[in-house]
Amino acid sequence: ETVLRVGTFLSPQGVWHGPLEHLIETVNGKDTDLKLELVADPSSISPFQLGDAVSGGVIDMAYLSGAFYTNLVPEADANKLFNVPVAELRENGAMNLIDQIHRDKMGALFLGKMGDGIKYHIYTNRSSDEPRFEGWDMRGTPLYRPFMEALGANVIQMQGSEVYSAMESGVVDGYAWPLWGIGDLGLLEVTDYRVEPGFYNAEISVLFNEDKWNSLTEEQQDTLRSSVIETEEWFIDYRNRVDEEQRRLQADAGIEAITFSEEQSQDYVRMADEAGWAVVIENSPELGPQIKELTYTDKQ
């Protein structure tokens, strides 16, 4: 029996863990000699080192968001910007390109991508009729800082653990977070509004150590590939269900949606995308445009 060591960048419970749990169950449920075992989570390997861990072979497989390993693969910053569904990326050669980049730069395969369509949202305590936040103090991370600046906000950096206190006392007027999980951070009670058009994807990549991969039999490799694809397909219903739950949770907590006209919403999303791609292409002038070409369509 081949036991493969898996690591996740999130604590192994709650809605975010669902896809990985499904993947592990899928592989272990198949009639093969492969077994996935979850050995690493943030209590054992920091999210910022999970990329190094899978690259160096401390773990065999990583469930990890692109923002955490840009030191190894700067192009991973683009993962959040893909708006072509993952099934199509497998058809049009995008997955092959991304996979090759990961092999070259970190010695790992890019096996698959979860999280398609989980959107980021801006959460605030101030209402606004238009998508401009001139002079608002917003908590920012490098992930969406350029977008916040494009919206006219004053971006303030702070740790995640201080957002609660900062929202409560008014140090910041808002923050961005995926649709999922603001309840886990206790932020429901200090948030009044959610800006409704979401932007980007809270994506999660599945990476696999290349040496370990090459040591597997072809049959084992096929099992892993097909399990990842099955999970990607399963994910769509799962996402819709959790999206709905999370919206309800926020509504129950009294969080109101801020909506704009269709045109304004489109501009808003385009502005986010442009700010994001500009950074990707600046950091990777050669591969960045190639990735954009295959993974992104400028149609709303």
Partner: peptide
């Protein structure tokens, strides 16, 4: 290794790792 690869830390400041 980080030096050979030219790894960069992409935060507000971009610093060689």
């Amino acid at each position: 290794e980080a030096f050979l690869k030219g790894s960069l830390l992409f935060k507000y400041l971009v610093i060689p790792q």
